[in-house]
């Protein structure tokens, strides 16, 4: 085991995949600058900077994957995926179904996501639930370096299209690039265990659709992804002092969803609190409730999500993003009922 940063772990696993399989290529906006190590090691043919043409280069990734490559295509931020949605919604996600299962699209769209550094509502969205809504898309959202590397390997090996989202509060290079810009005068609520941690000496794939129980709890189950997982862990520690045993489940992939792990945890605790940095309405939080209820498991339910456009102002932003304080309050409310 060794220690590695979140973003380094992704790049390291990606490098391993590139060594093992010459069909793996990387392209996207500024990849020579953002992935300097890969650019130097694998050369411009395999790590290729793209024009600001998301519709074209994400669309090209679909074609390239259909024709034999395994592209890892980078979009500067998940918000900018809006420009390329057609490629994902109507093409990447549909080819396998349209071809009767005979033709698959093994591509990864890698995009930074998430807020908490004051960049405004067009640059801090999460959108994992919105993307996972589309049948045919796999959506991966890791919360720590070890998962980030292992899941990247699985995403590349997967035969279908995967959206791989890296939260900017975890990927320190992105936070430095877009948030602090080298300033020592700004502070962010960065979860230490998420940004840096132990990783295996050689990367092994972590199966897609497998959640991780990070903390067992008998009174309530907190479920989240990415930074939300760390807020849940903090909340769980605070709740423990209040004699509430709160378990924490890290979904790791939003789609496919680990329904079994979710249902097992909730059937034990009888209470589900979803912590989702993505938008509340019509998204992941409602989906988790539906899954549990469809399984016939009685429960009390609550959610702490982003409910509106993310404000630029740091103070307002903090109020609307799921925070440890909001999670604790919501958990206590669920216990009282």
């Amino acid at each position: 085991m060794k220690t590695m940063g979140f973003a380094d772990a992704i790049d390291d696993a990606l490098a391993q995949a590139m060594v093992d399989d010459s069909r793996v290529v990387v392209f996207g906006e500024d990849v020579h600058g953002l992935r300097t190590g890969l650019f130097v090691r694998f050369g411009e043919k395999r790590v290729r900077p793209a024009p600001i043409s998301e519709a074209a280069f994400v669309g090209a990734a679909v074609g390239a994957a259909m024709a034999g490559l395994r592209p890892v295509v980078e979009v500067m931020m998940v918000d900018f995926i809006g420009v390329a949605v057609d490629a994902l919604l109507n093409h990447a996600a549909k080819v396998e179904a349209f071809s009767g299962g005979k033709w698959k699209v093994p591509m990864v769209v890698r995009a930074p996501c998430g807020g908490g550094y004051g960049d405004g509502g067009q640059h801090e969205q999460s959108l994992w639930g919105w993307l996972a809504h589309i049948p045919g898309l796999t959506v991966v959202v890791p919360s720590n370096p070890a998962d980030a590397g292992g899941l990247m390997l699985s995403a590349i090996e997967h035969e279908g299209p995967v959206v791989y989202l890296e939260h900017k509060l975890l990927a320190s290079n992105m936070l430095d690039f877009l948030g602090s810009g080298g300033r020592k005068t700004v502070q962010y609520d960065v979860p230490a265990e998420g940004t840096c941690g132990s990783v295996p000496d050689g990367w092994m794939p972590i199966p897609l659709g497998k959640a991780a129980i990070l903390h067992e709890g008998k009174d309530i189950t907190l479920v989240s992804v990415a930074v939300g997982v760390h807020r849940c862990l903090e909340a769980s520690a605070i709740l423990k002092k209040k004699r509430i045993s709160a378990g924490v489940l890290d979904l790791r992939t939003v789609s496919p969803l680990d329904k079994e792990a979710l249902c097992q945890a909730v059937s034990r605790s009888g209470r589900l609190l979803v912590v989702d940095e993505d938008y509340r309405d019509f998204g992941l939080s409602g989906e988790l409730a539906a899954v549990v209820l469809e399984a016939g498991i009685p429960m009390r339910y609550g959610r702490v999500c982003t409910e509106e456009t993310i404000p630029y102002c740091r103070e307002f932003e903090h109020q609307i993003l799921p925070s440890t304080g909001r999670i604790v309050d919501a958990a206590i409310k669920l216990m009282d009922r």
């Binding site: 020579h32 300097t36 190590g37 043919k45």
Partner: peptide, 27 residues
């Protein structure tokens, strides 16, 4: 990252690596 990757085993040819290094330097 450049110093770490430049001599890394397996990857592009030395020529391609130097070319990448050249582009970064020129930027």
């Amino acid at each position: 990252p450049i110093m770490h990757s430049l001599p890394a085993r397996k990857g592009a040819s030395p020529g391609e690596r130097i070319a990448s290094l050249g582009s970064i330097t020129s930027l």
